[in-house]
């Protein structure tokens, strides 16, 4: 199996035509705007923005299927848990209006288990679902849509020092190598009868049983890093500020995107500061009976 970075060049894809700096700045603004609000009415436009970028990126279901299934499973599970238990939402509401309640037909030591769905829990779960899904969708786009050769120069352009910025390039360069080494070790141990899928025992026992994979991969990475450091030293890395051959130039669309991102962040921050970012519960739902009332 070949292990490669996820980026694929897609002609005429809007996201890939952007300067990676503009995209990263917009992503940062989107992140701030999203975490500023729990109001579903304000979150839905952000979801729209995320959907716009996903559909304009030309990602195919086949190449992103695993990521989407993981995110969907994660979001649905935790949103469902929130809806049924009210976990995490208590700080956003003090009163709950009961939409439905189901009491167990038995009691344990005088306590009867009851499942309550309130308007507040429902809206909180819906807001969380939209929030996490929007953020995850935008995050998925990063590895698929930013050219791995542009990470270093993009972060340098965002003000990071040469050494940190080039570390990003090195990471992109050696992820496939690391993946291939991992696959080699996996093959070597499977040829000795090791079956990863048959790991048994508790968490610590399972981690311990991963040693046949983790130890060789780690040792190999450490040994290989000596060569990498030598190769960098031998070509004068870090002795003075470096020129980056690749030069990124903002286009008009990049400037517009950054401006929109900043406006979005400022607007959502301002709305949050004047009290519009709180959890929204439609008035119609507040007509239901109050829990414990």
């Amino acid at each position: 199996m070949l292990v490669t970075w996820r980026y694929h060049h897609r002609p005429k894809s809007f996201v890939q035509s952007l300067d990676p700096r503009a995209w990263l700045i917009f992503f940062g603004c989107f992140l701030v705007a999203t975490v500023m609000t729990w109001d579903l009415r304000l979150l839905l436009p952000l979801l729209g923005v995320a959907l716009f970028f996903i559909f304009s990126s030309r990602l195919t279901w086949r190449e992103t299927r695993r990521a989407w299934l993981f995110i969907t499973g994660f979001v649905v599970f935790f949103s469902g848990l929130t809806l049924l238990t009210g976990r995490g939402g208590m700080e956003h509401y003090t009163v709950e209006h009961v939409l439905a309640a189901a009491r167990a037909p038995f009691s344990l030591f005088g306590w009867t288990p009851t499942l309550t769905v309130s308007a507040e829990r429902l809206m909180f779960a819906a807001s969380m679902l939209v929030r996490v899904f929007s953020l995850a969708s935008m995050t998925i786009l990063i590895p698929y849509c930013i050219n791995p050769a542009q990470y270093g120069v993009a972060f340098r352009g965002l003000g990071l020092p040469d050494k940190f910025a080039y570390a990003m390039d090195l990471t992109m360069r050696f992820i496939p190598t690391f993946g291939r080494d991992f696959q080699l070790t996996m093959d070597a141990q499977r040829a000795r009868g090791y079956e990863l899928e048959k790991l048994e025992g508790g968490l610590f026992a399972q981690v311990r049983k991963l040693a046949p994979l983790l130890v060789p991969v780690t040792i190999h990475a450490i040994a290989g890093s000596e060569d990498i450091i030598d190769a960098m030293d031998l070509r004068a890395f870090g002795v003075q500020p470096r020129t980056w051959l690749l030069q990124l130039v903002y286009q008009r669309r990049d400037q517009i995107l950054i401006a929109l991102g900043v406006m979005m962040m400022v607007a959502y921050t301002a709305l949050s500061l004047i009290g519009f970012g709180r959890l929204w519960v439609p008035e119609a739902l507040q007509a239901f009976p109050v829990l414990g009332g």
Binding site: A149, D169, I228, A231, A236, T243, W244, L245
Partner: peptide
């Protein structure tokens, strides 16, 4: 495999020259 640091061939060949701060 360990000596090549650039993700693309041109940037790999240019690596040492970039470190010497030569003009693009």
């Amino acid at each position: 495999e360990r000596q090549i640091l650039g993700t693309r061939v041109l940037y790999e060949v240019a690596f040492g020259l970039e470190n010497l701060s030569l003009p693009r």
